[in-house]
Simulated assay, not measured.
Amino acid sequence: MIRHLVLFRLNEGVERDDPRVVAGVKAFEELEGRIPELRAWECGWNISDRPIAYDFAINSAVEDPEALTRYLEHPAHRAAAGLWREFATWVIADYPF
């Protein structure tokens, strides 16, 4: 199995209630159950107020590297990630577990 973690930081001046952010969160929430490769799916707002904290996180799992590629290339994933490009930056980590 491979864990796929993504941490998002909203761009300067962008708030959680921005309509673009609301649409982006909804798009990620709706991925659960839509992409067959996903074995686990969680996403949500960070509750920490530490200065190094990111704002939003995705924690997911897929079977193998090929499944990760299919997930990343899935049209629903591409559409959701495309929304976030407008208002956030992110970092990822993919590791076996």
Rank of each mutant, 00 (worst) to 15 (best):
E63K: 12
A67H: 10
D94V: 11
P19M: 11
L83T: 08
V22Q: 14
E86D: 14
W41P: 03
V91W: 04
L10E: 11
P75K: 08
R39G: 01
G82I: 11
W41E: 04
W45Q: 05
T69F: 09
L10W: 11
V22K: 13
I92D: 14
V14T: 07
F56D: 00
N11R: 15
A57I: 04
E29V: 08
V22L: 14
P96H: 15
I58H: 05
A40V: 05
A23I: 15
A40H: 03
P96Y: 15
R70A: 13
H4K: 09
I35L: 02
A40F: 07
A79K: 11
Y71Q: 00
A93H: 08
Y71R: 02
I52N: 13
A27C: 08
W90K: 09
T89Q: 15
T69M: 08
V22E: 10
E66R: 12
E66L: 10
V22R: 15
W84H: 06
L38D: 04
G82N: 10
V6T: 03
W41Q: 02
C43L: 05
V14G: 00
E37H: 00
V25N: 02
R70E: 10
E66P: 00
F28L: 13
F87S: 04
T89G: 14
G33W: 07
V21F: 05
L7S: 06
D18C: 06
W84F: 10
A81W: 06
N11V: 05
E63A: 15
G44K: 06
V14K: 02
E32P: 00
F97A: 13
R9S: 11
L68P: 01
S48G: 05
T89A: 11
D64K: 02
R16S: 10
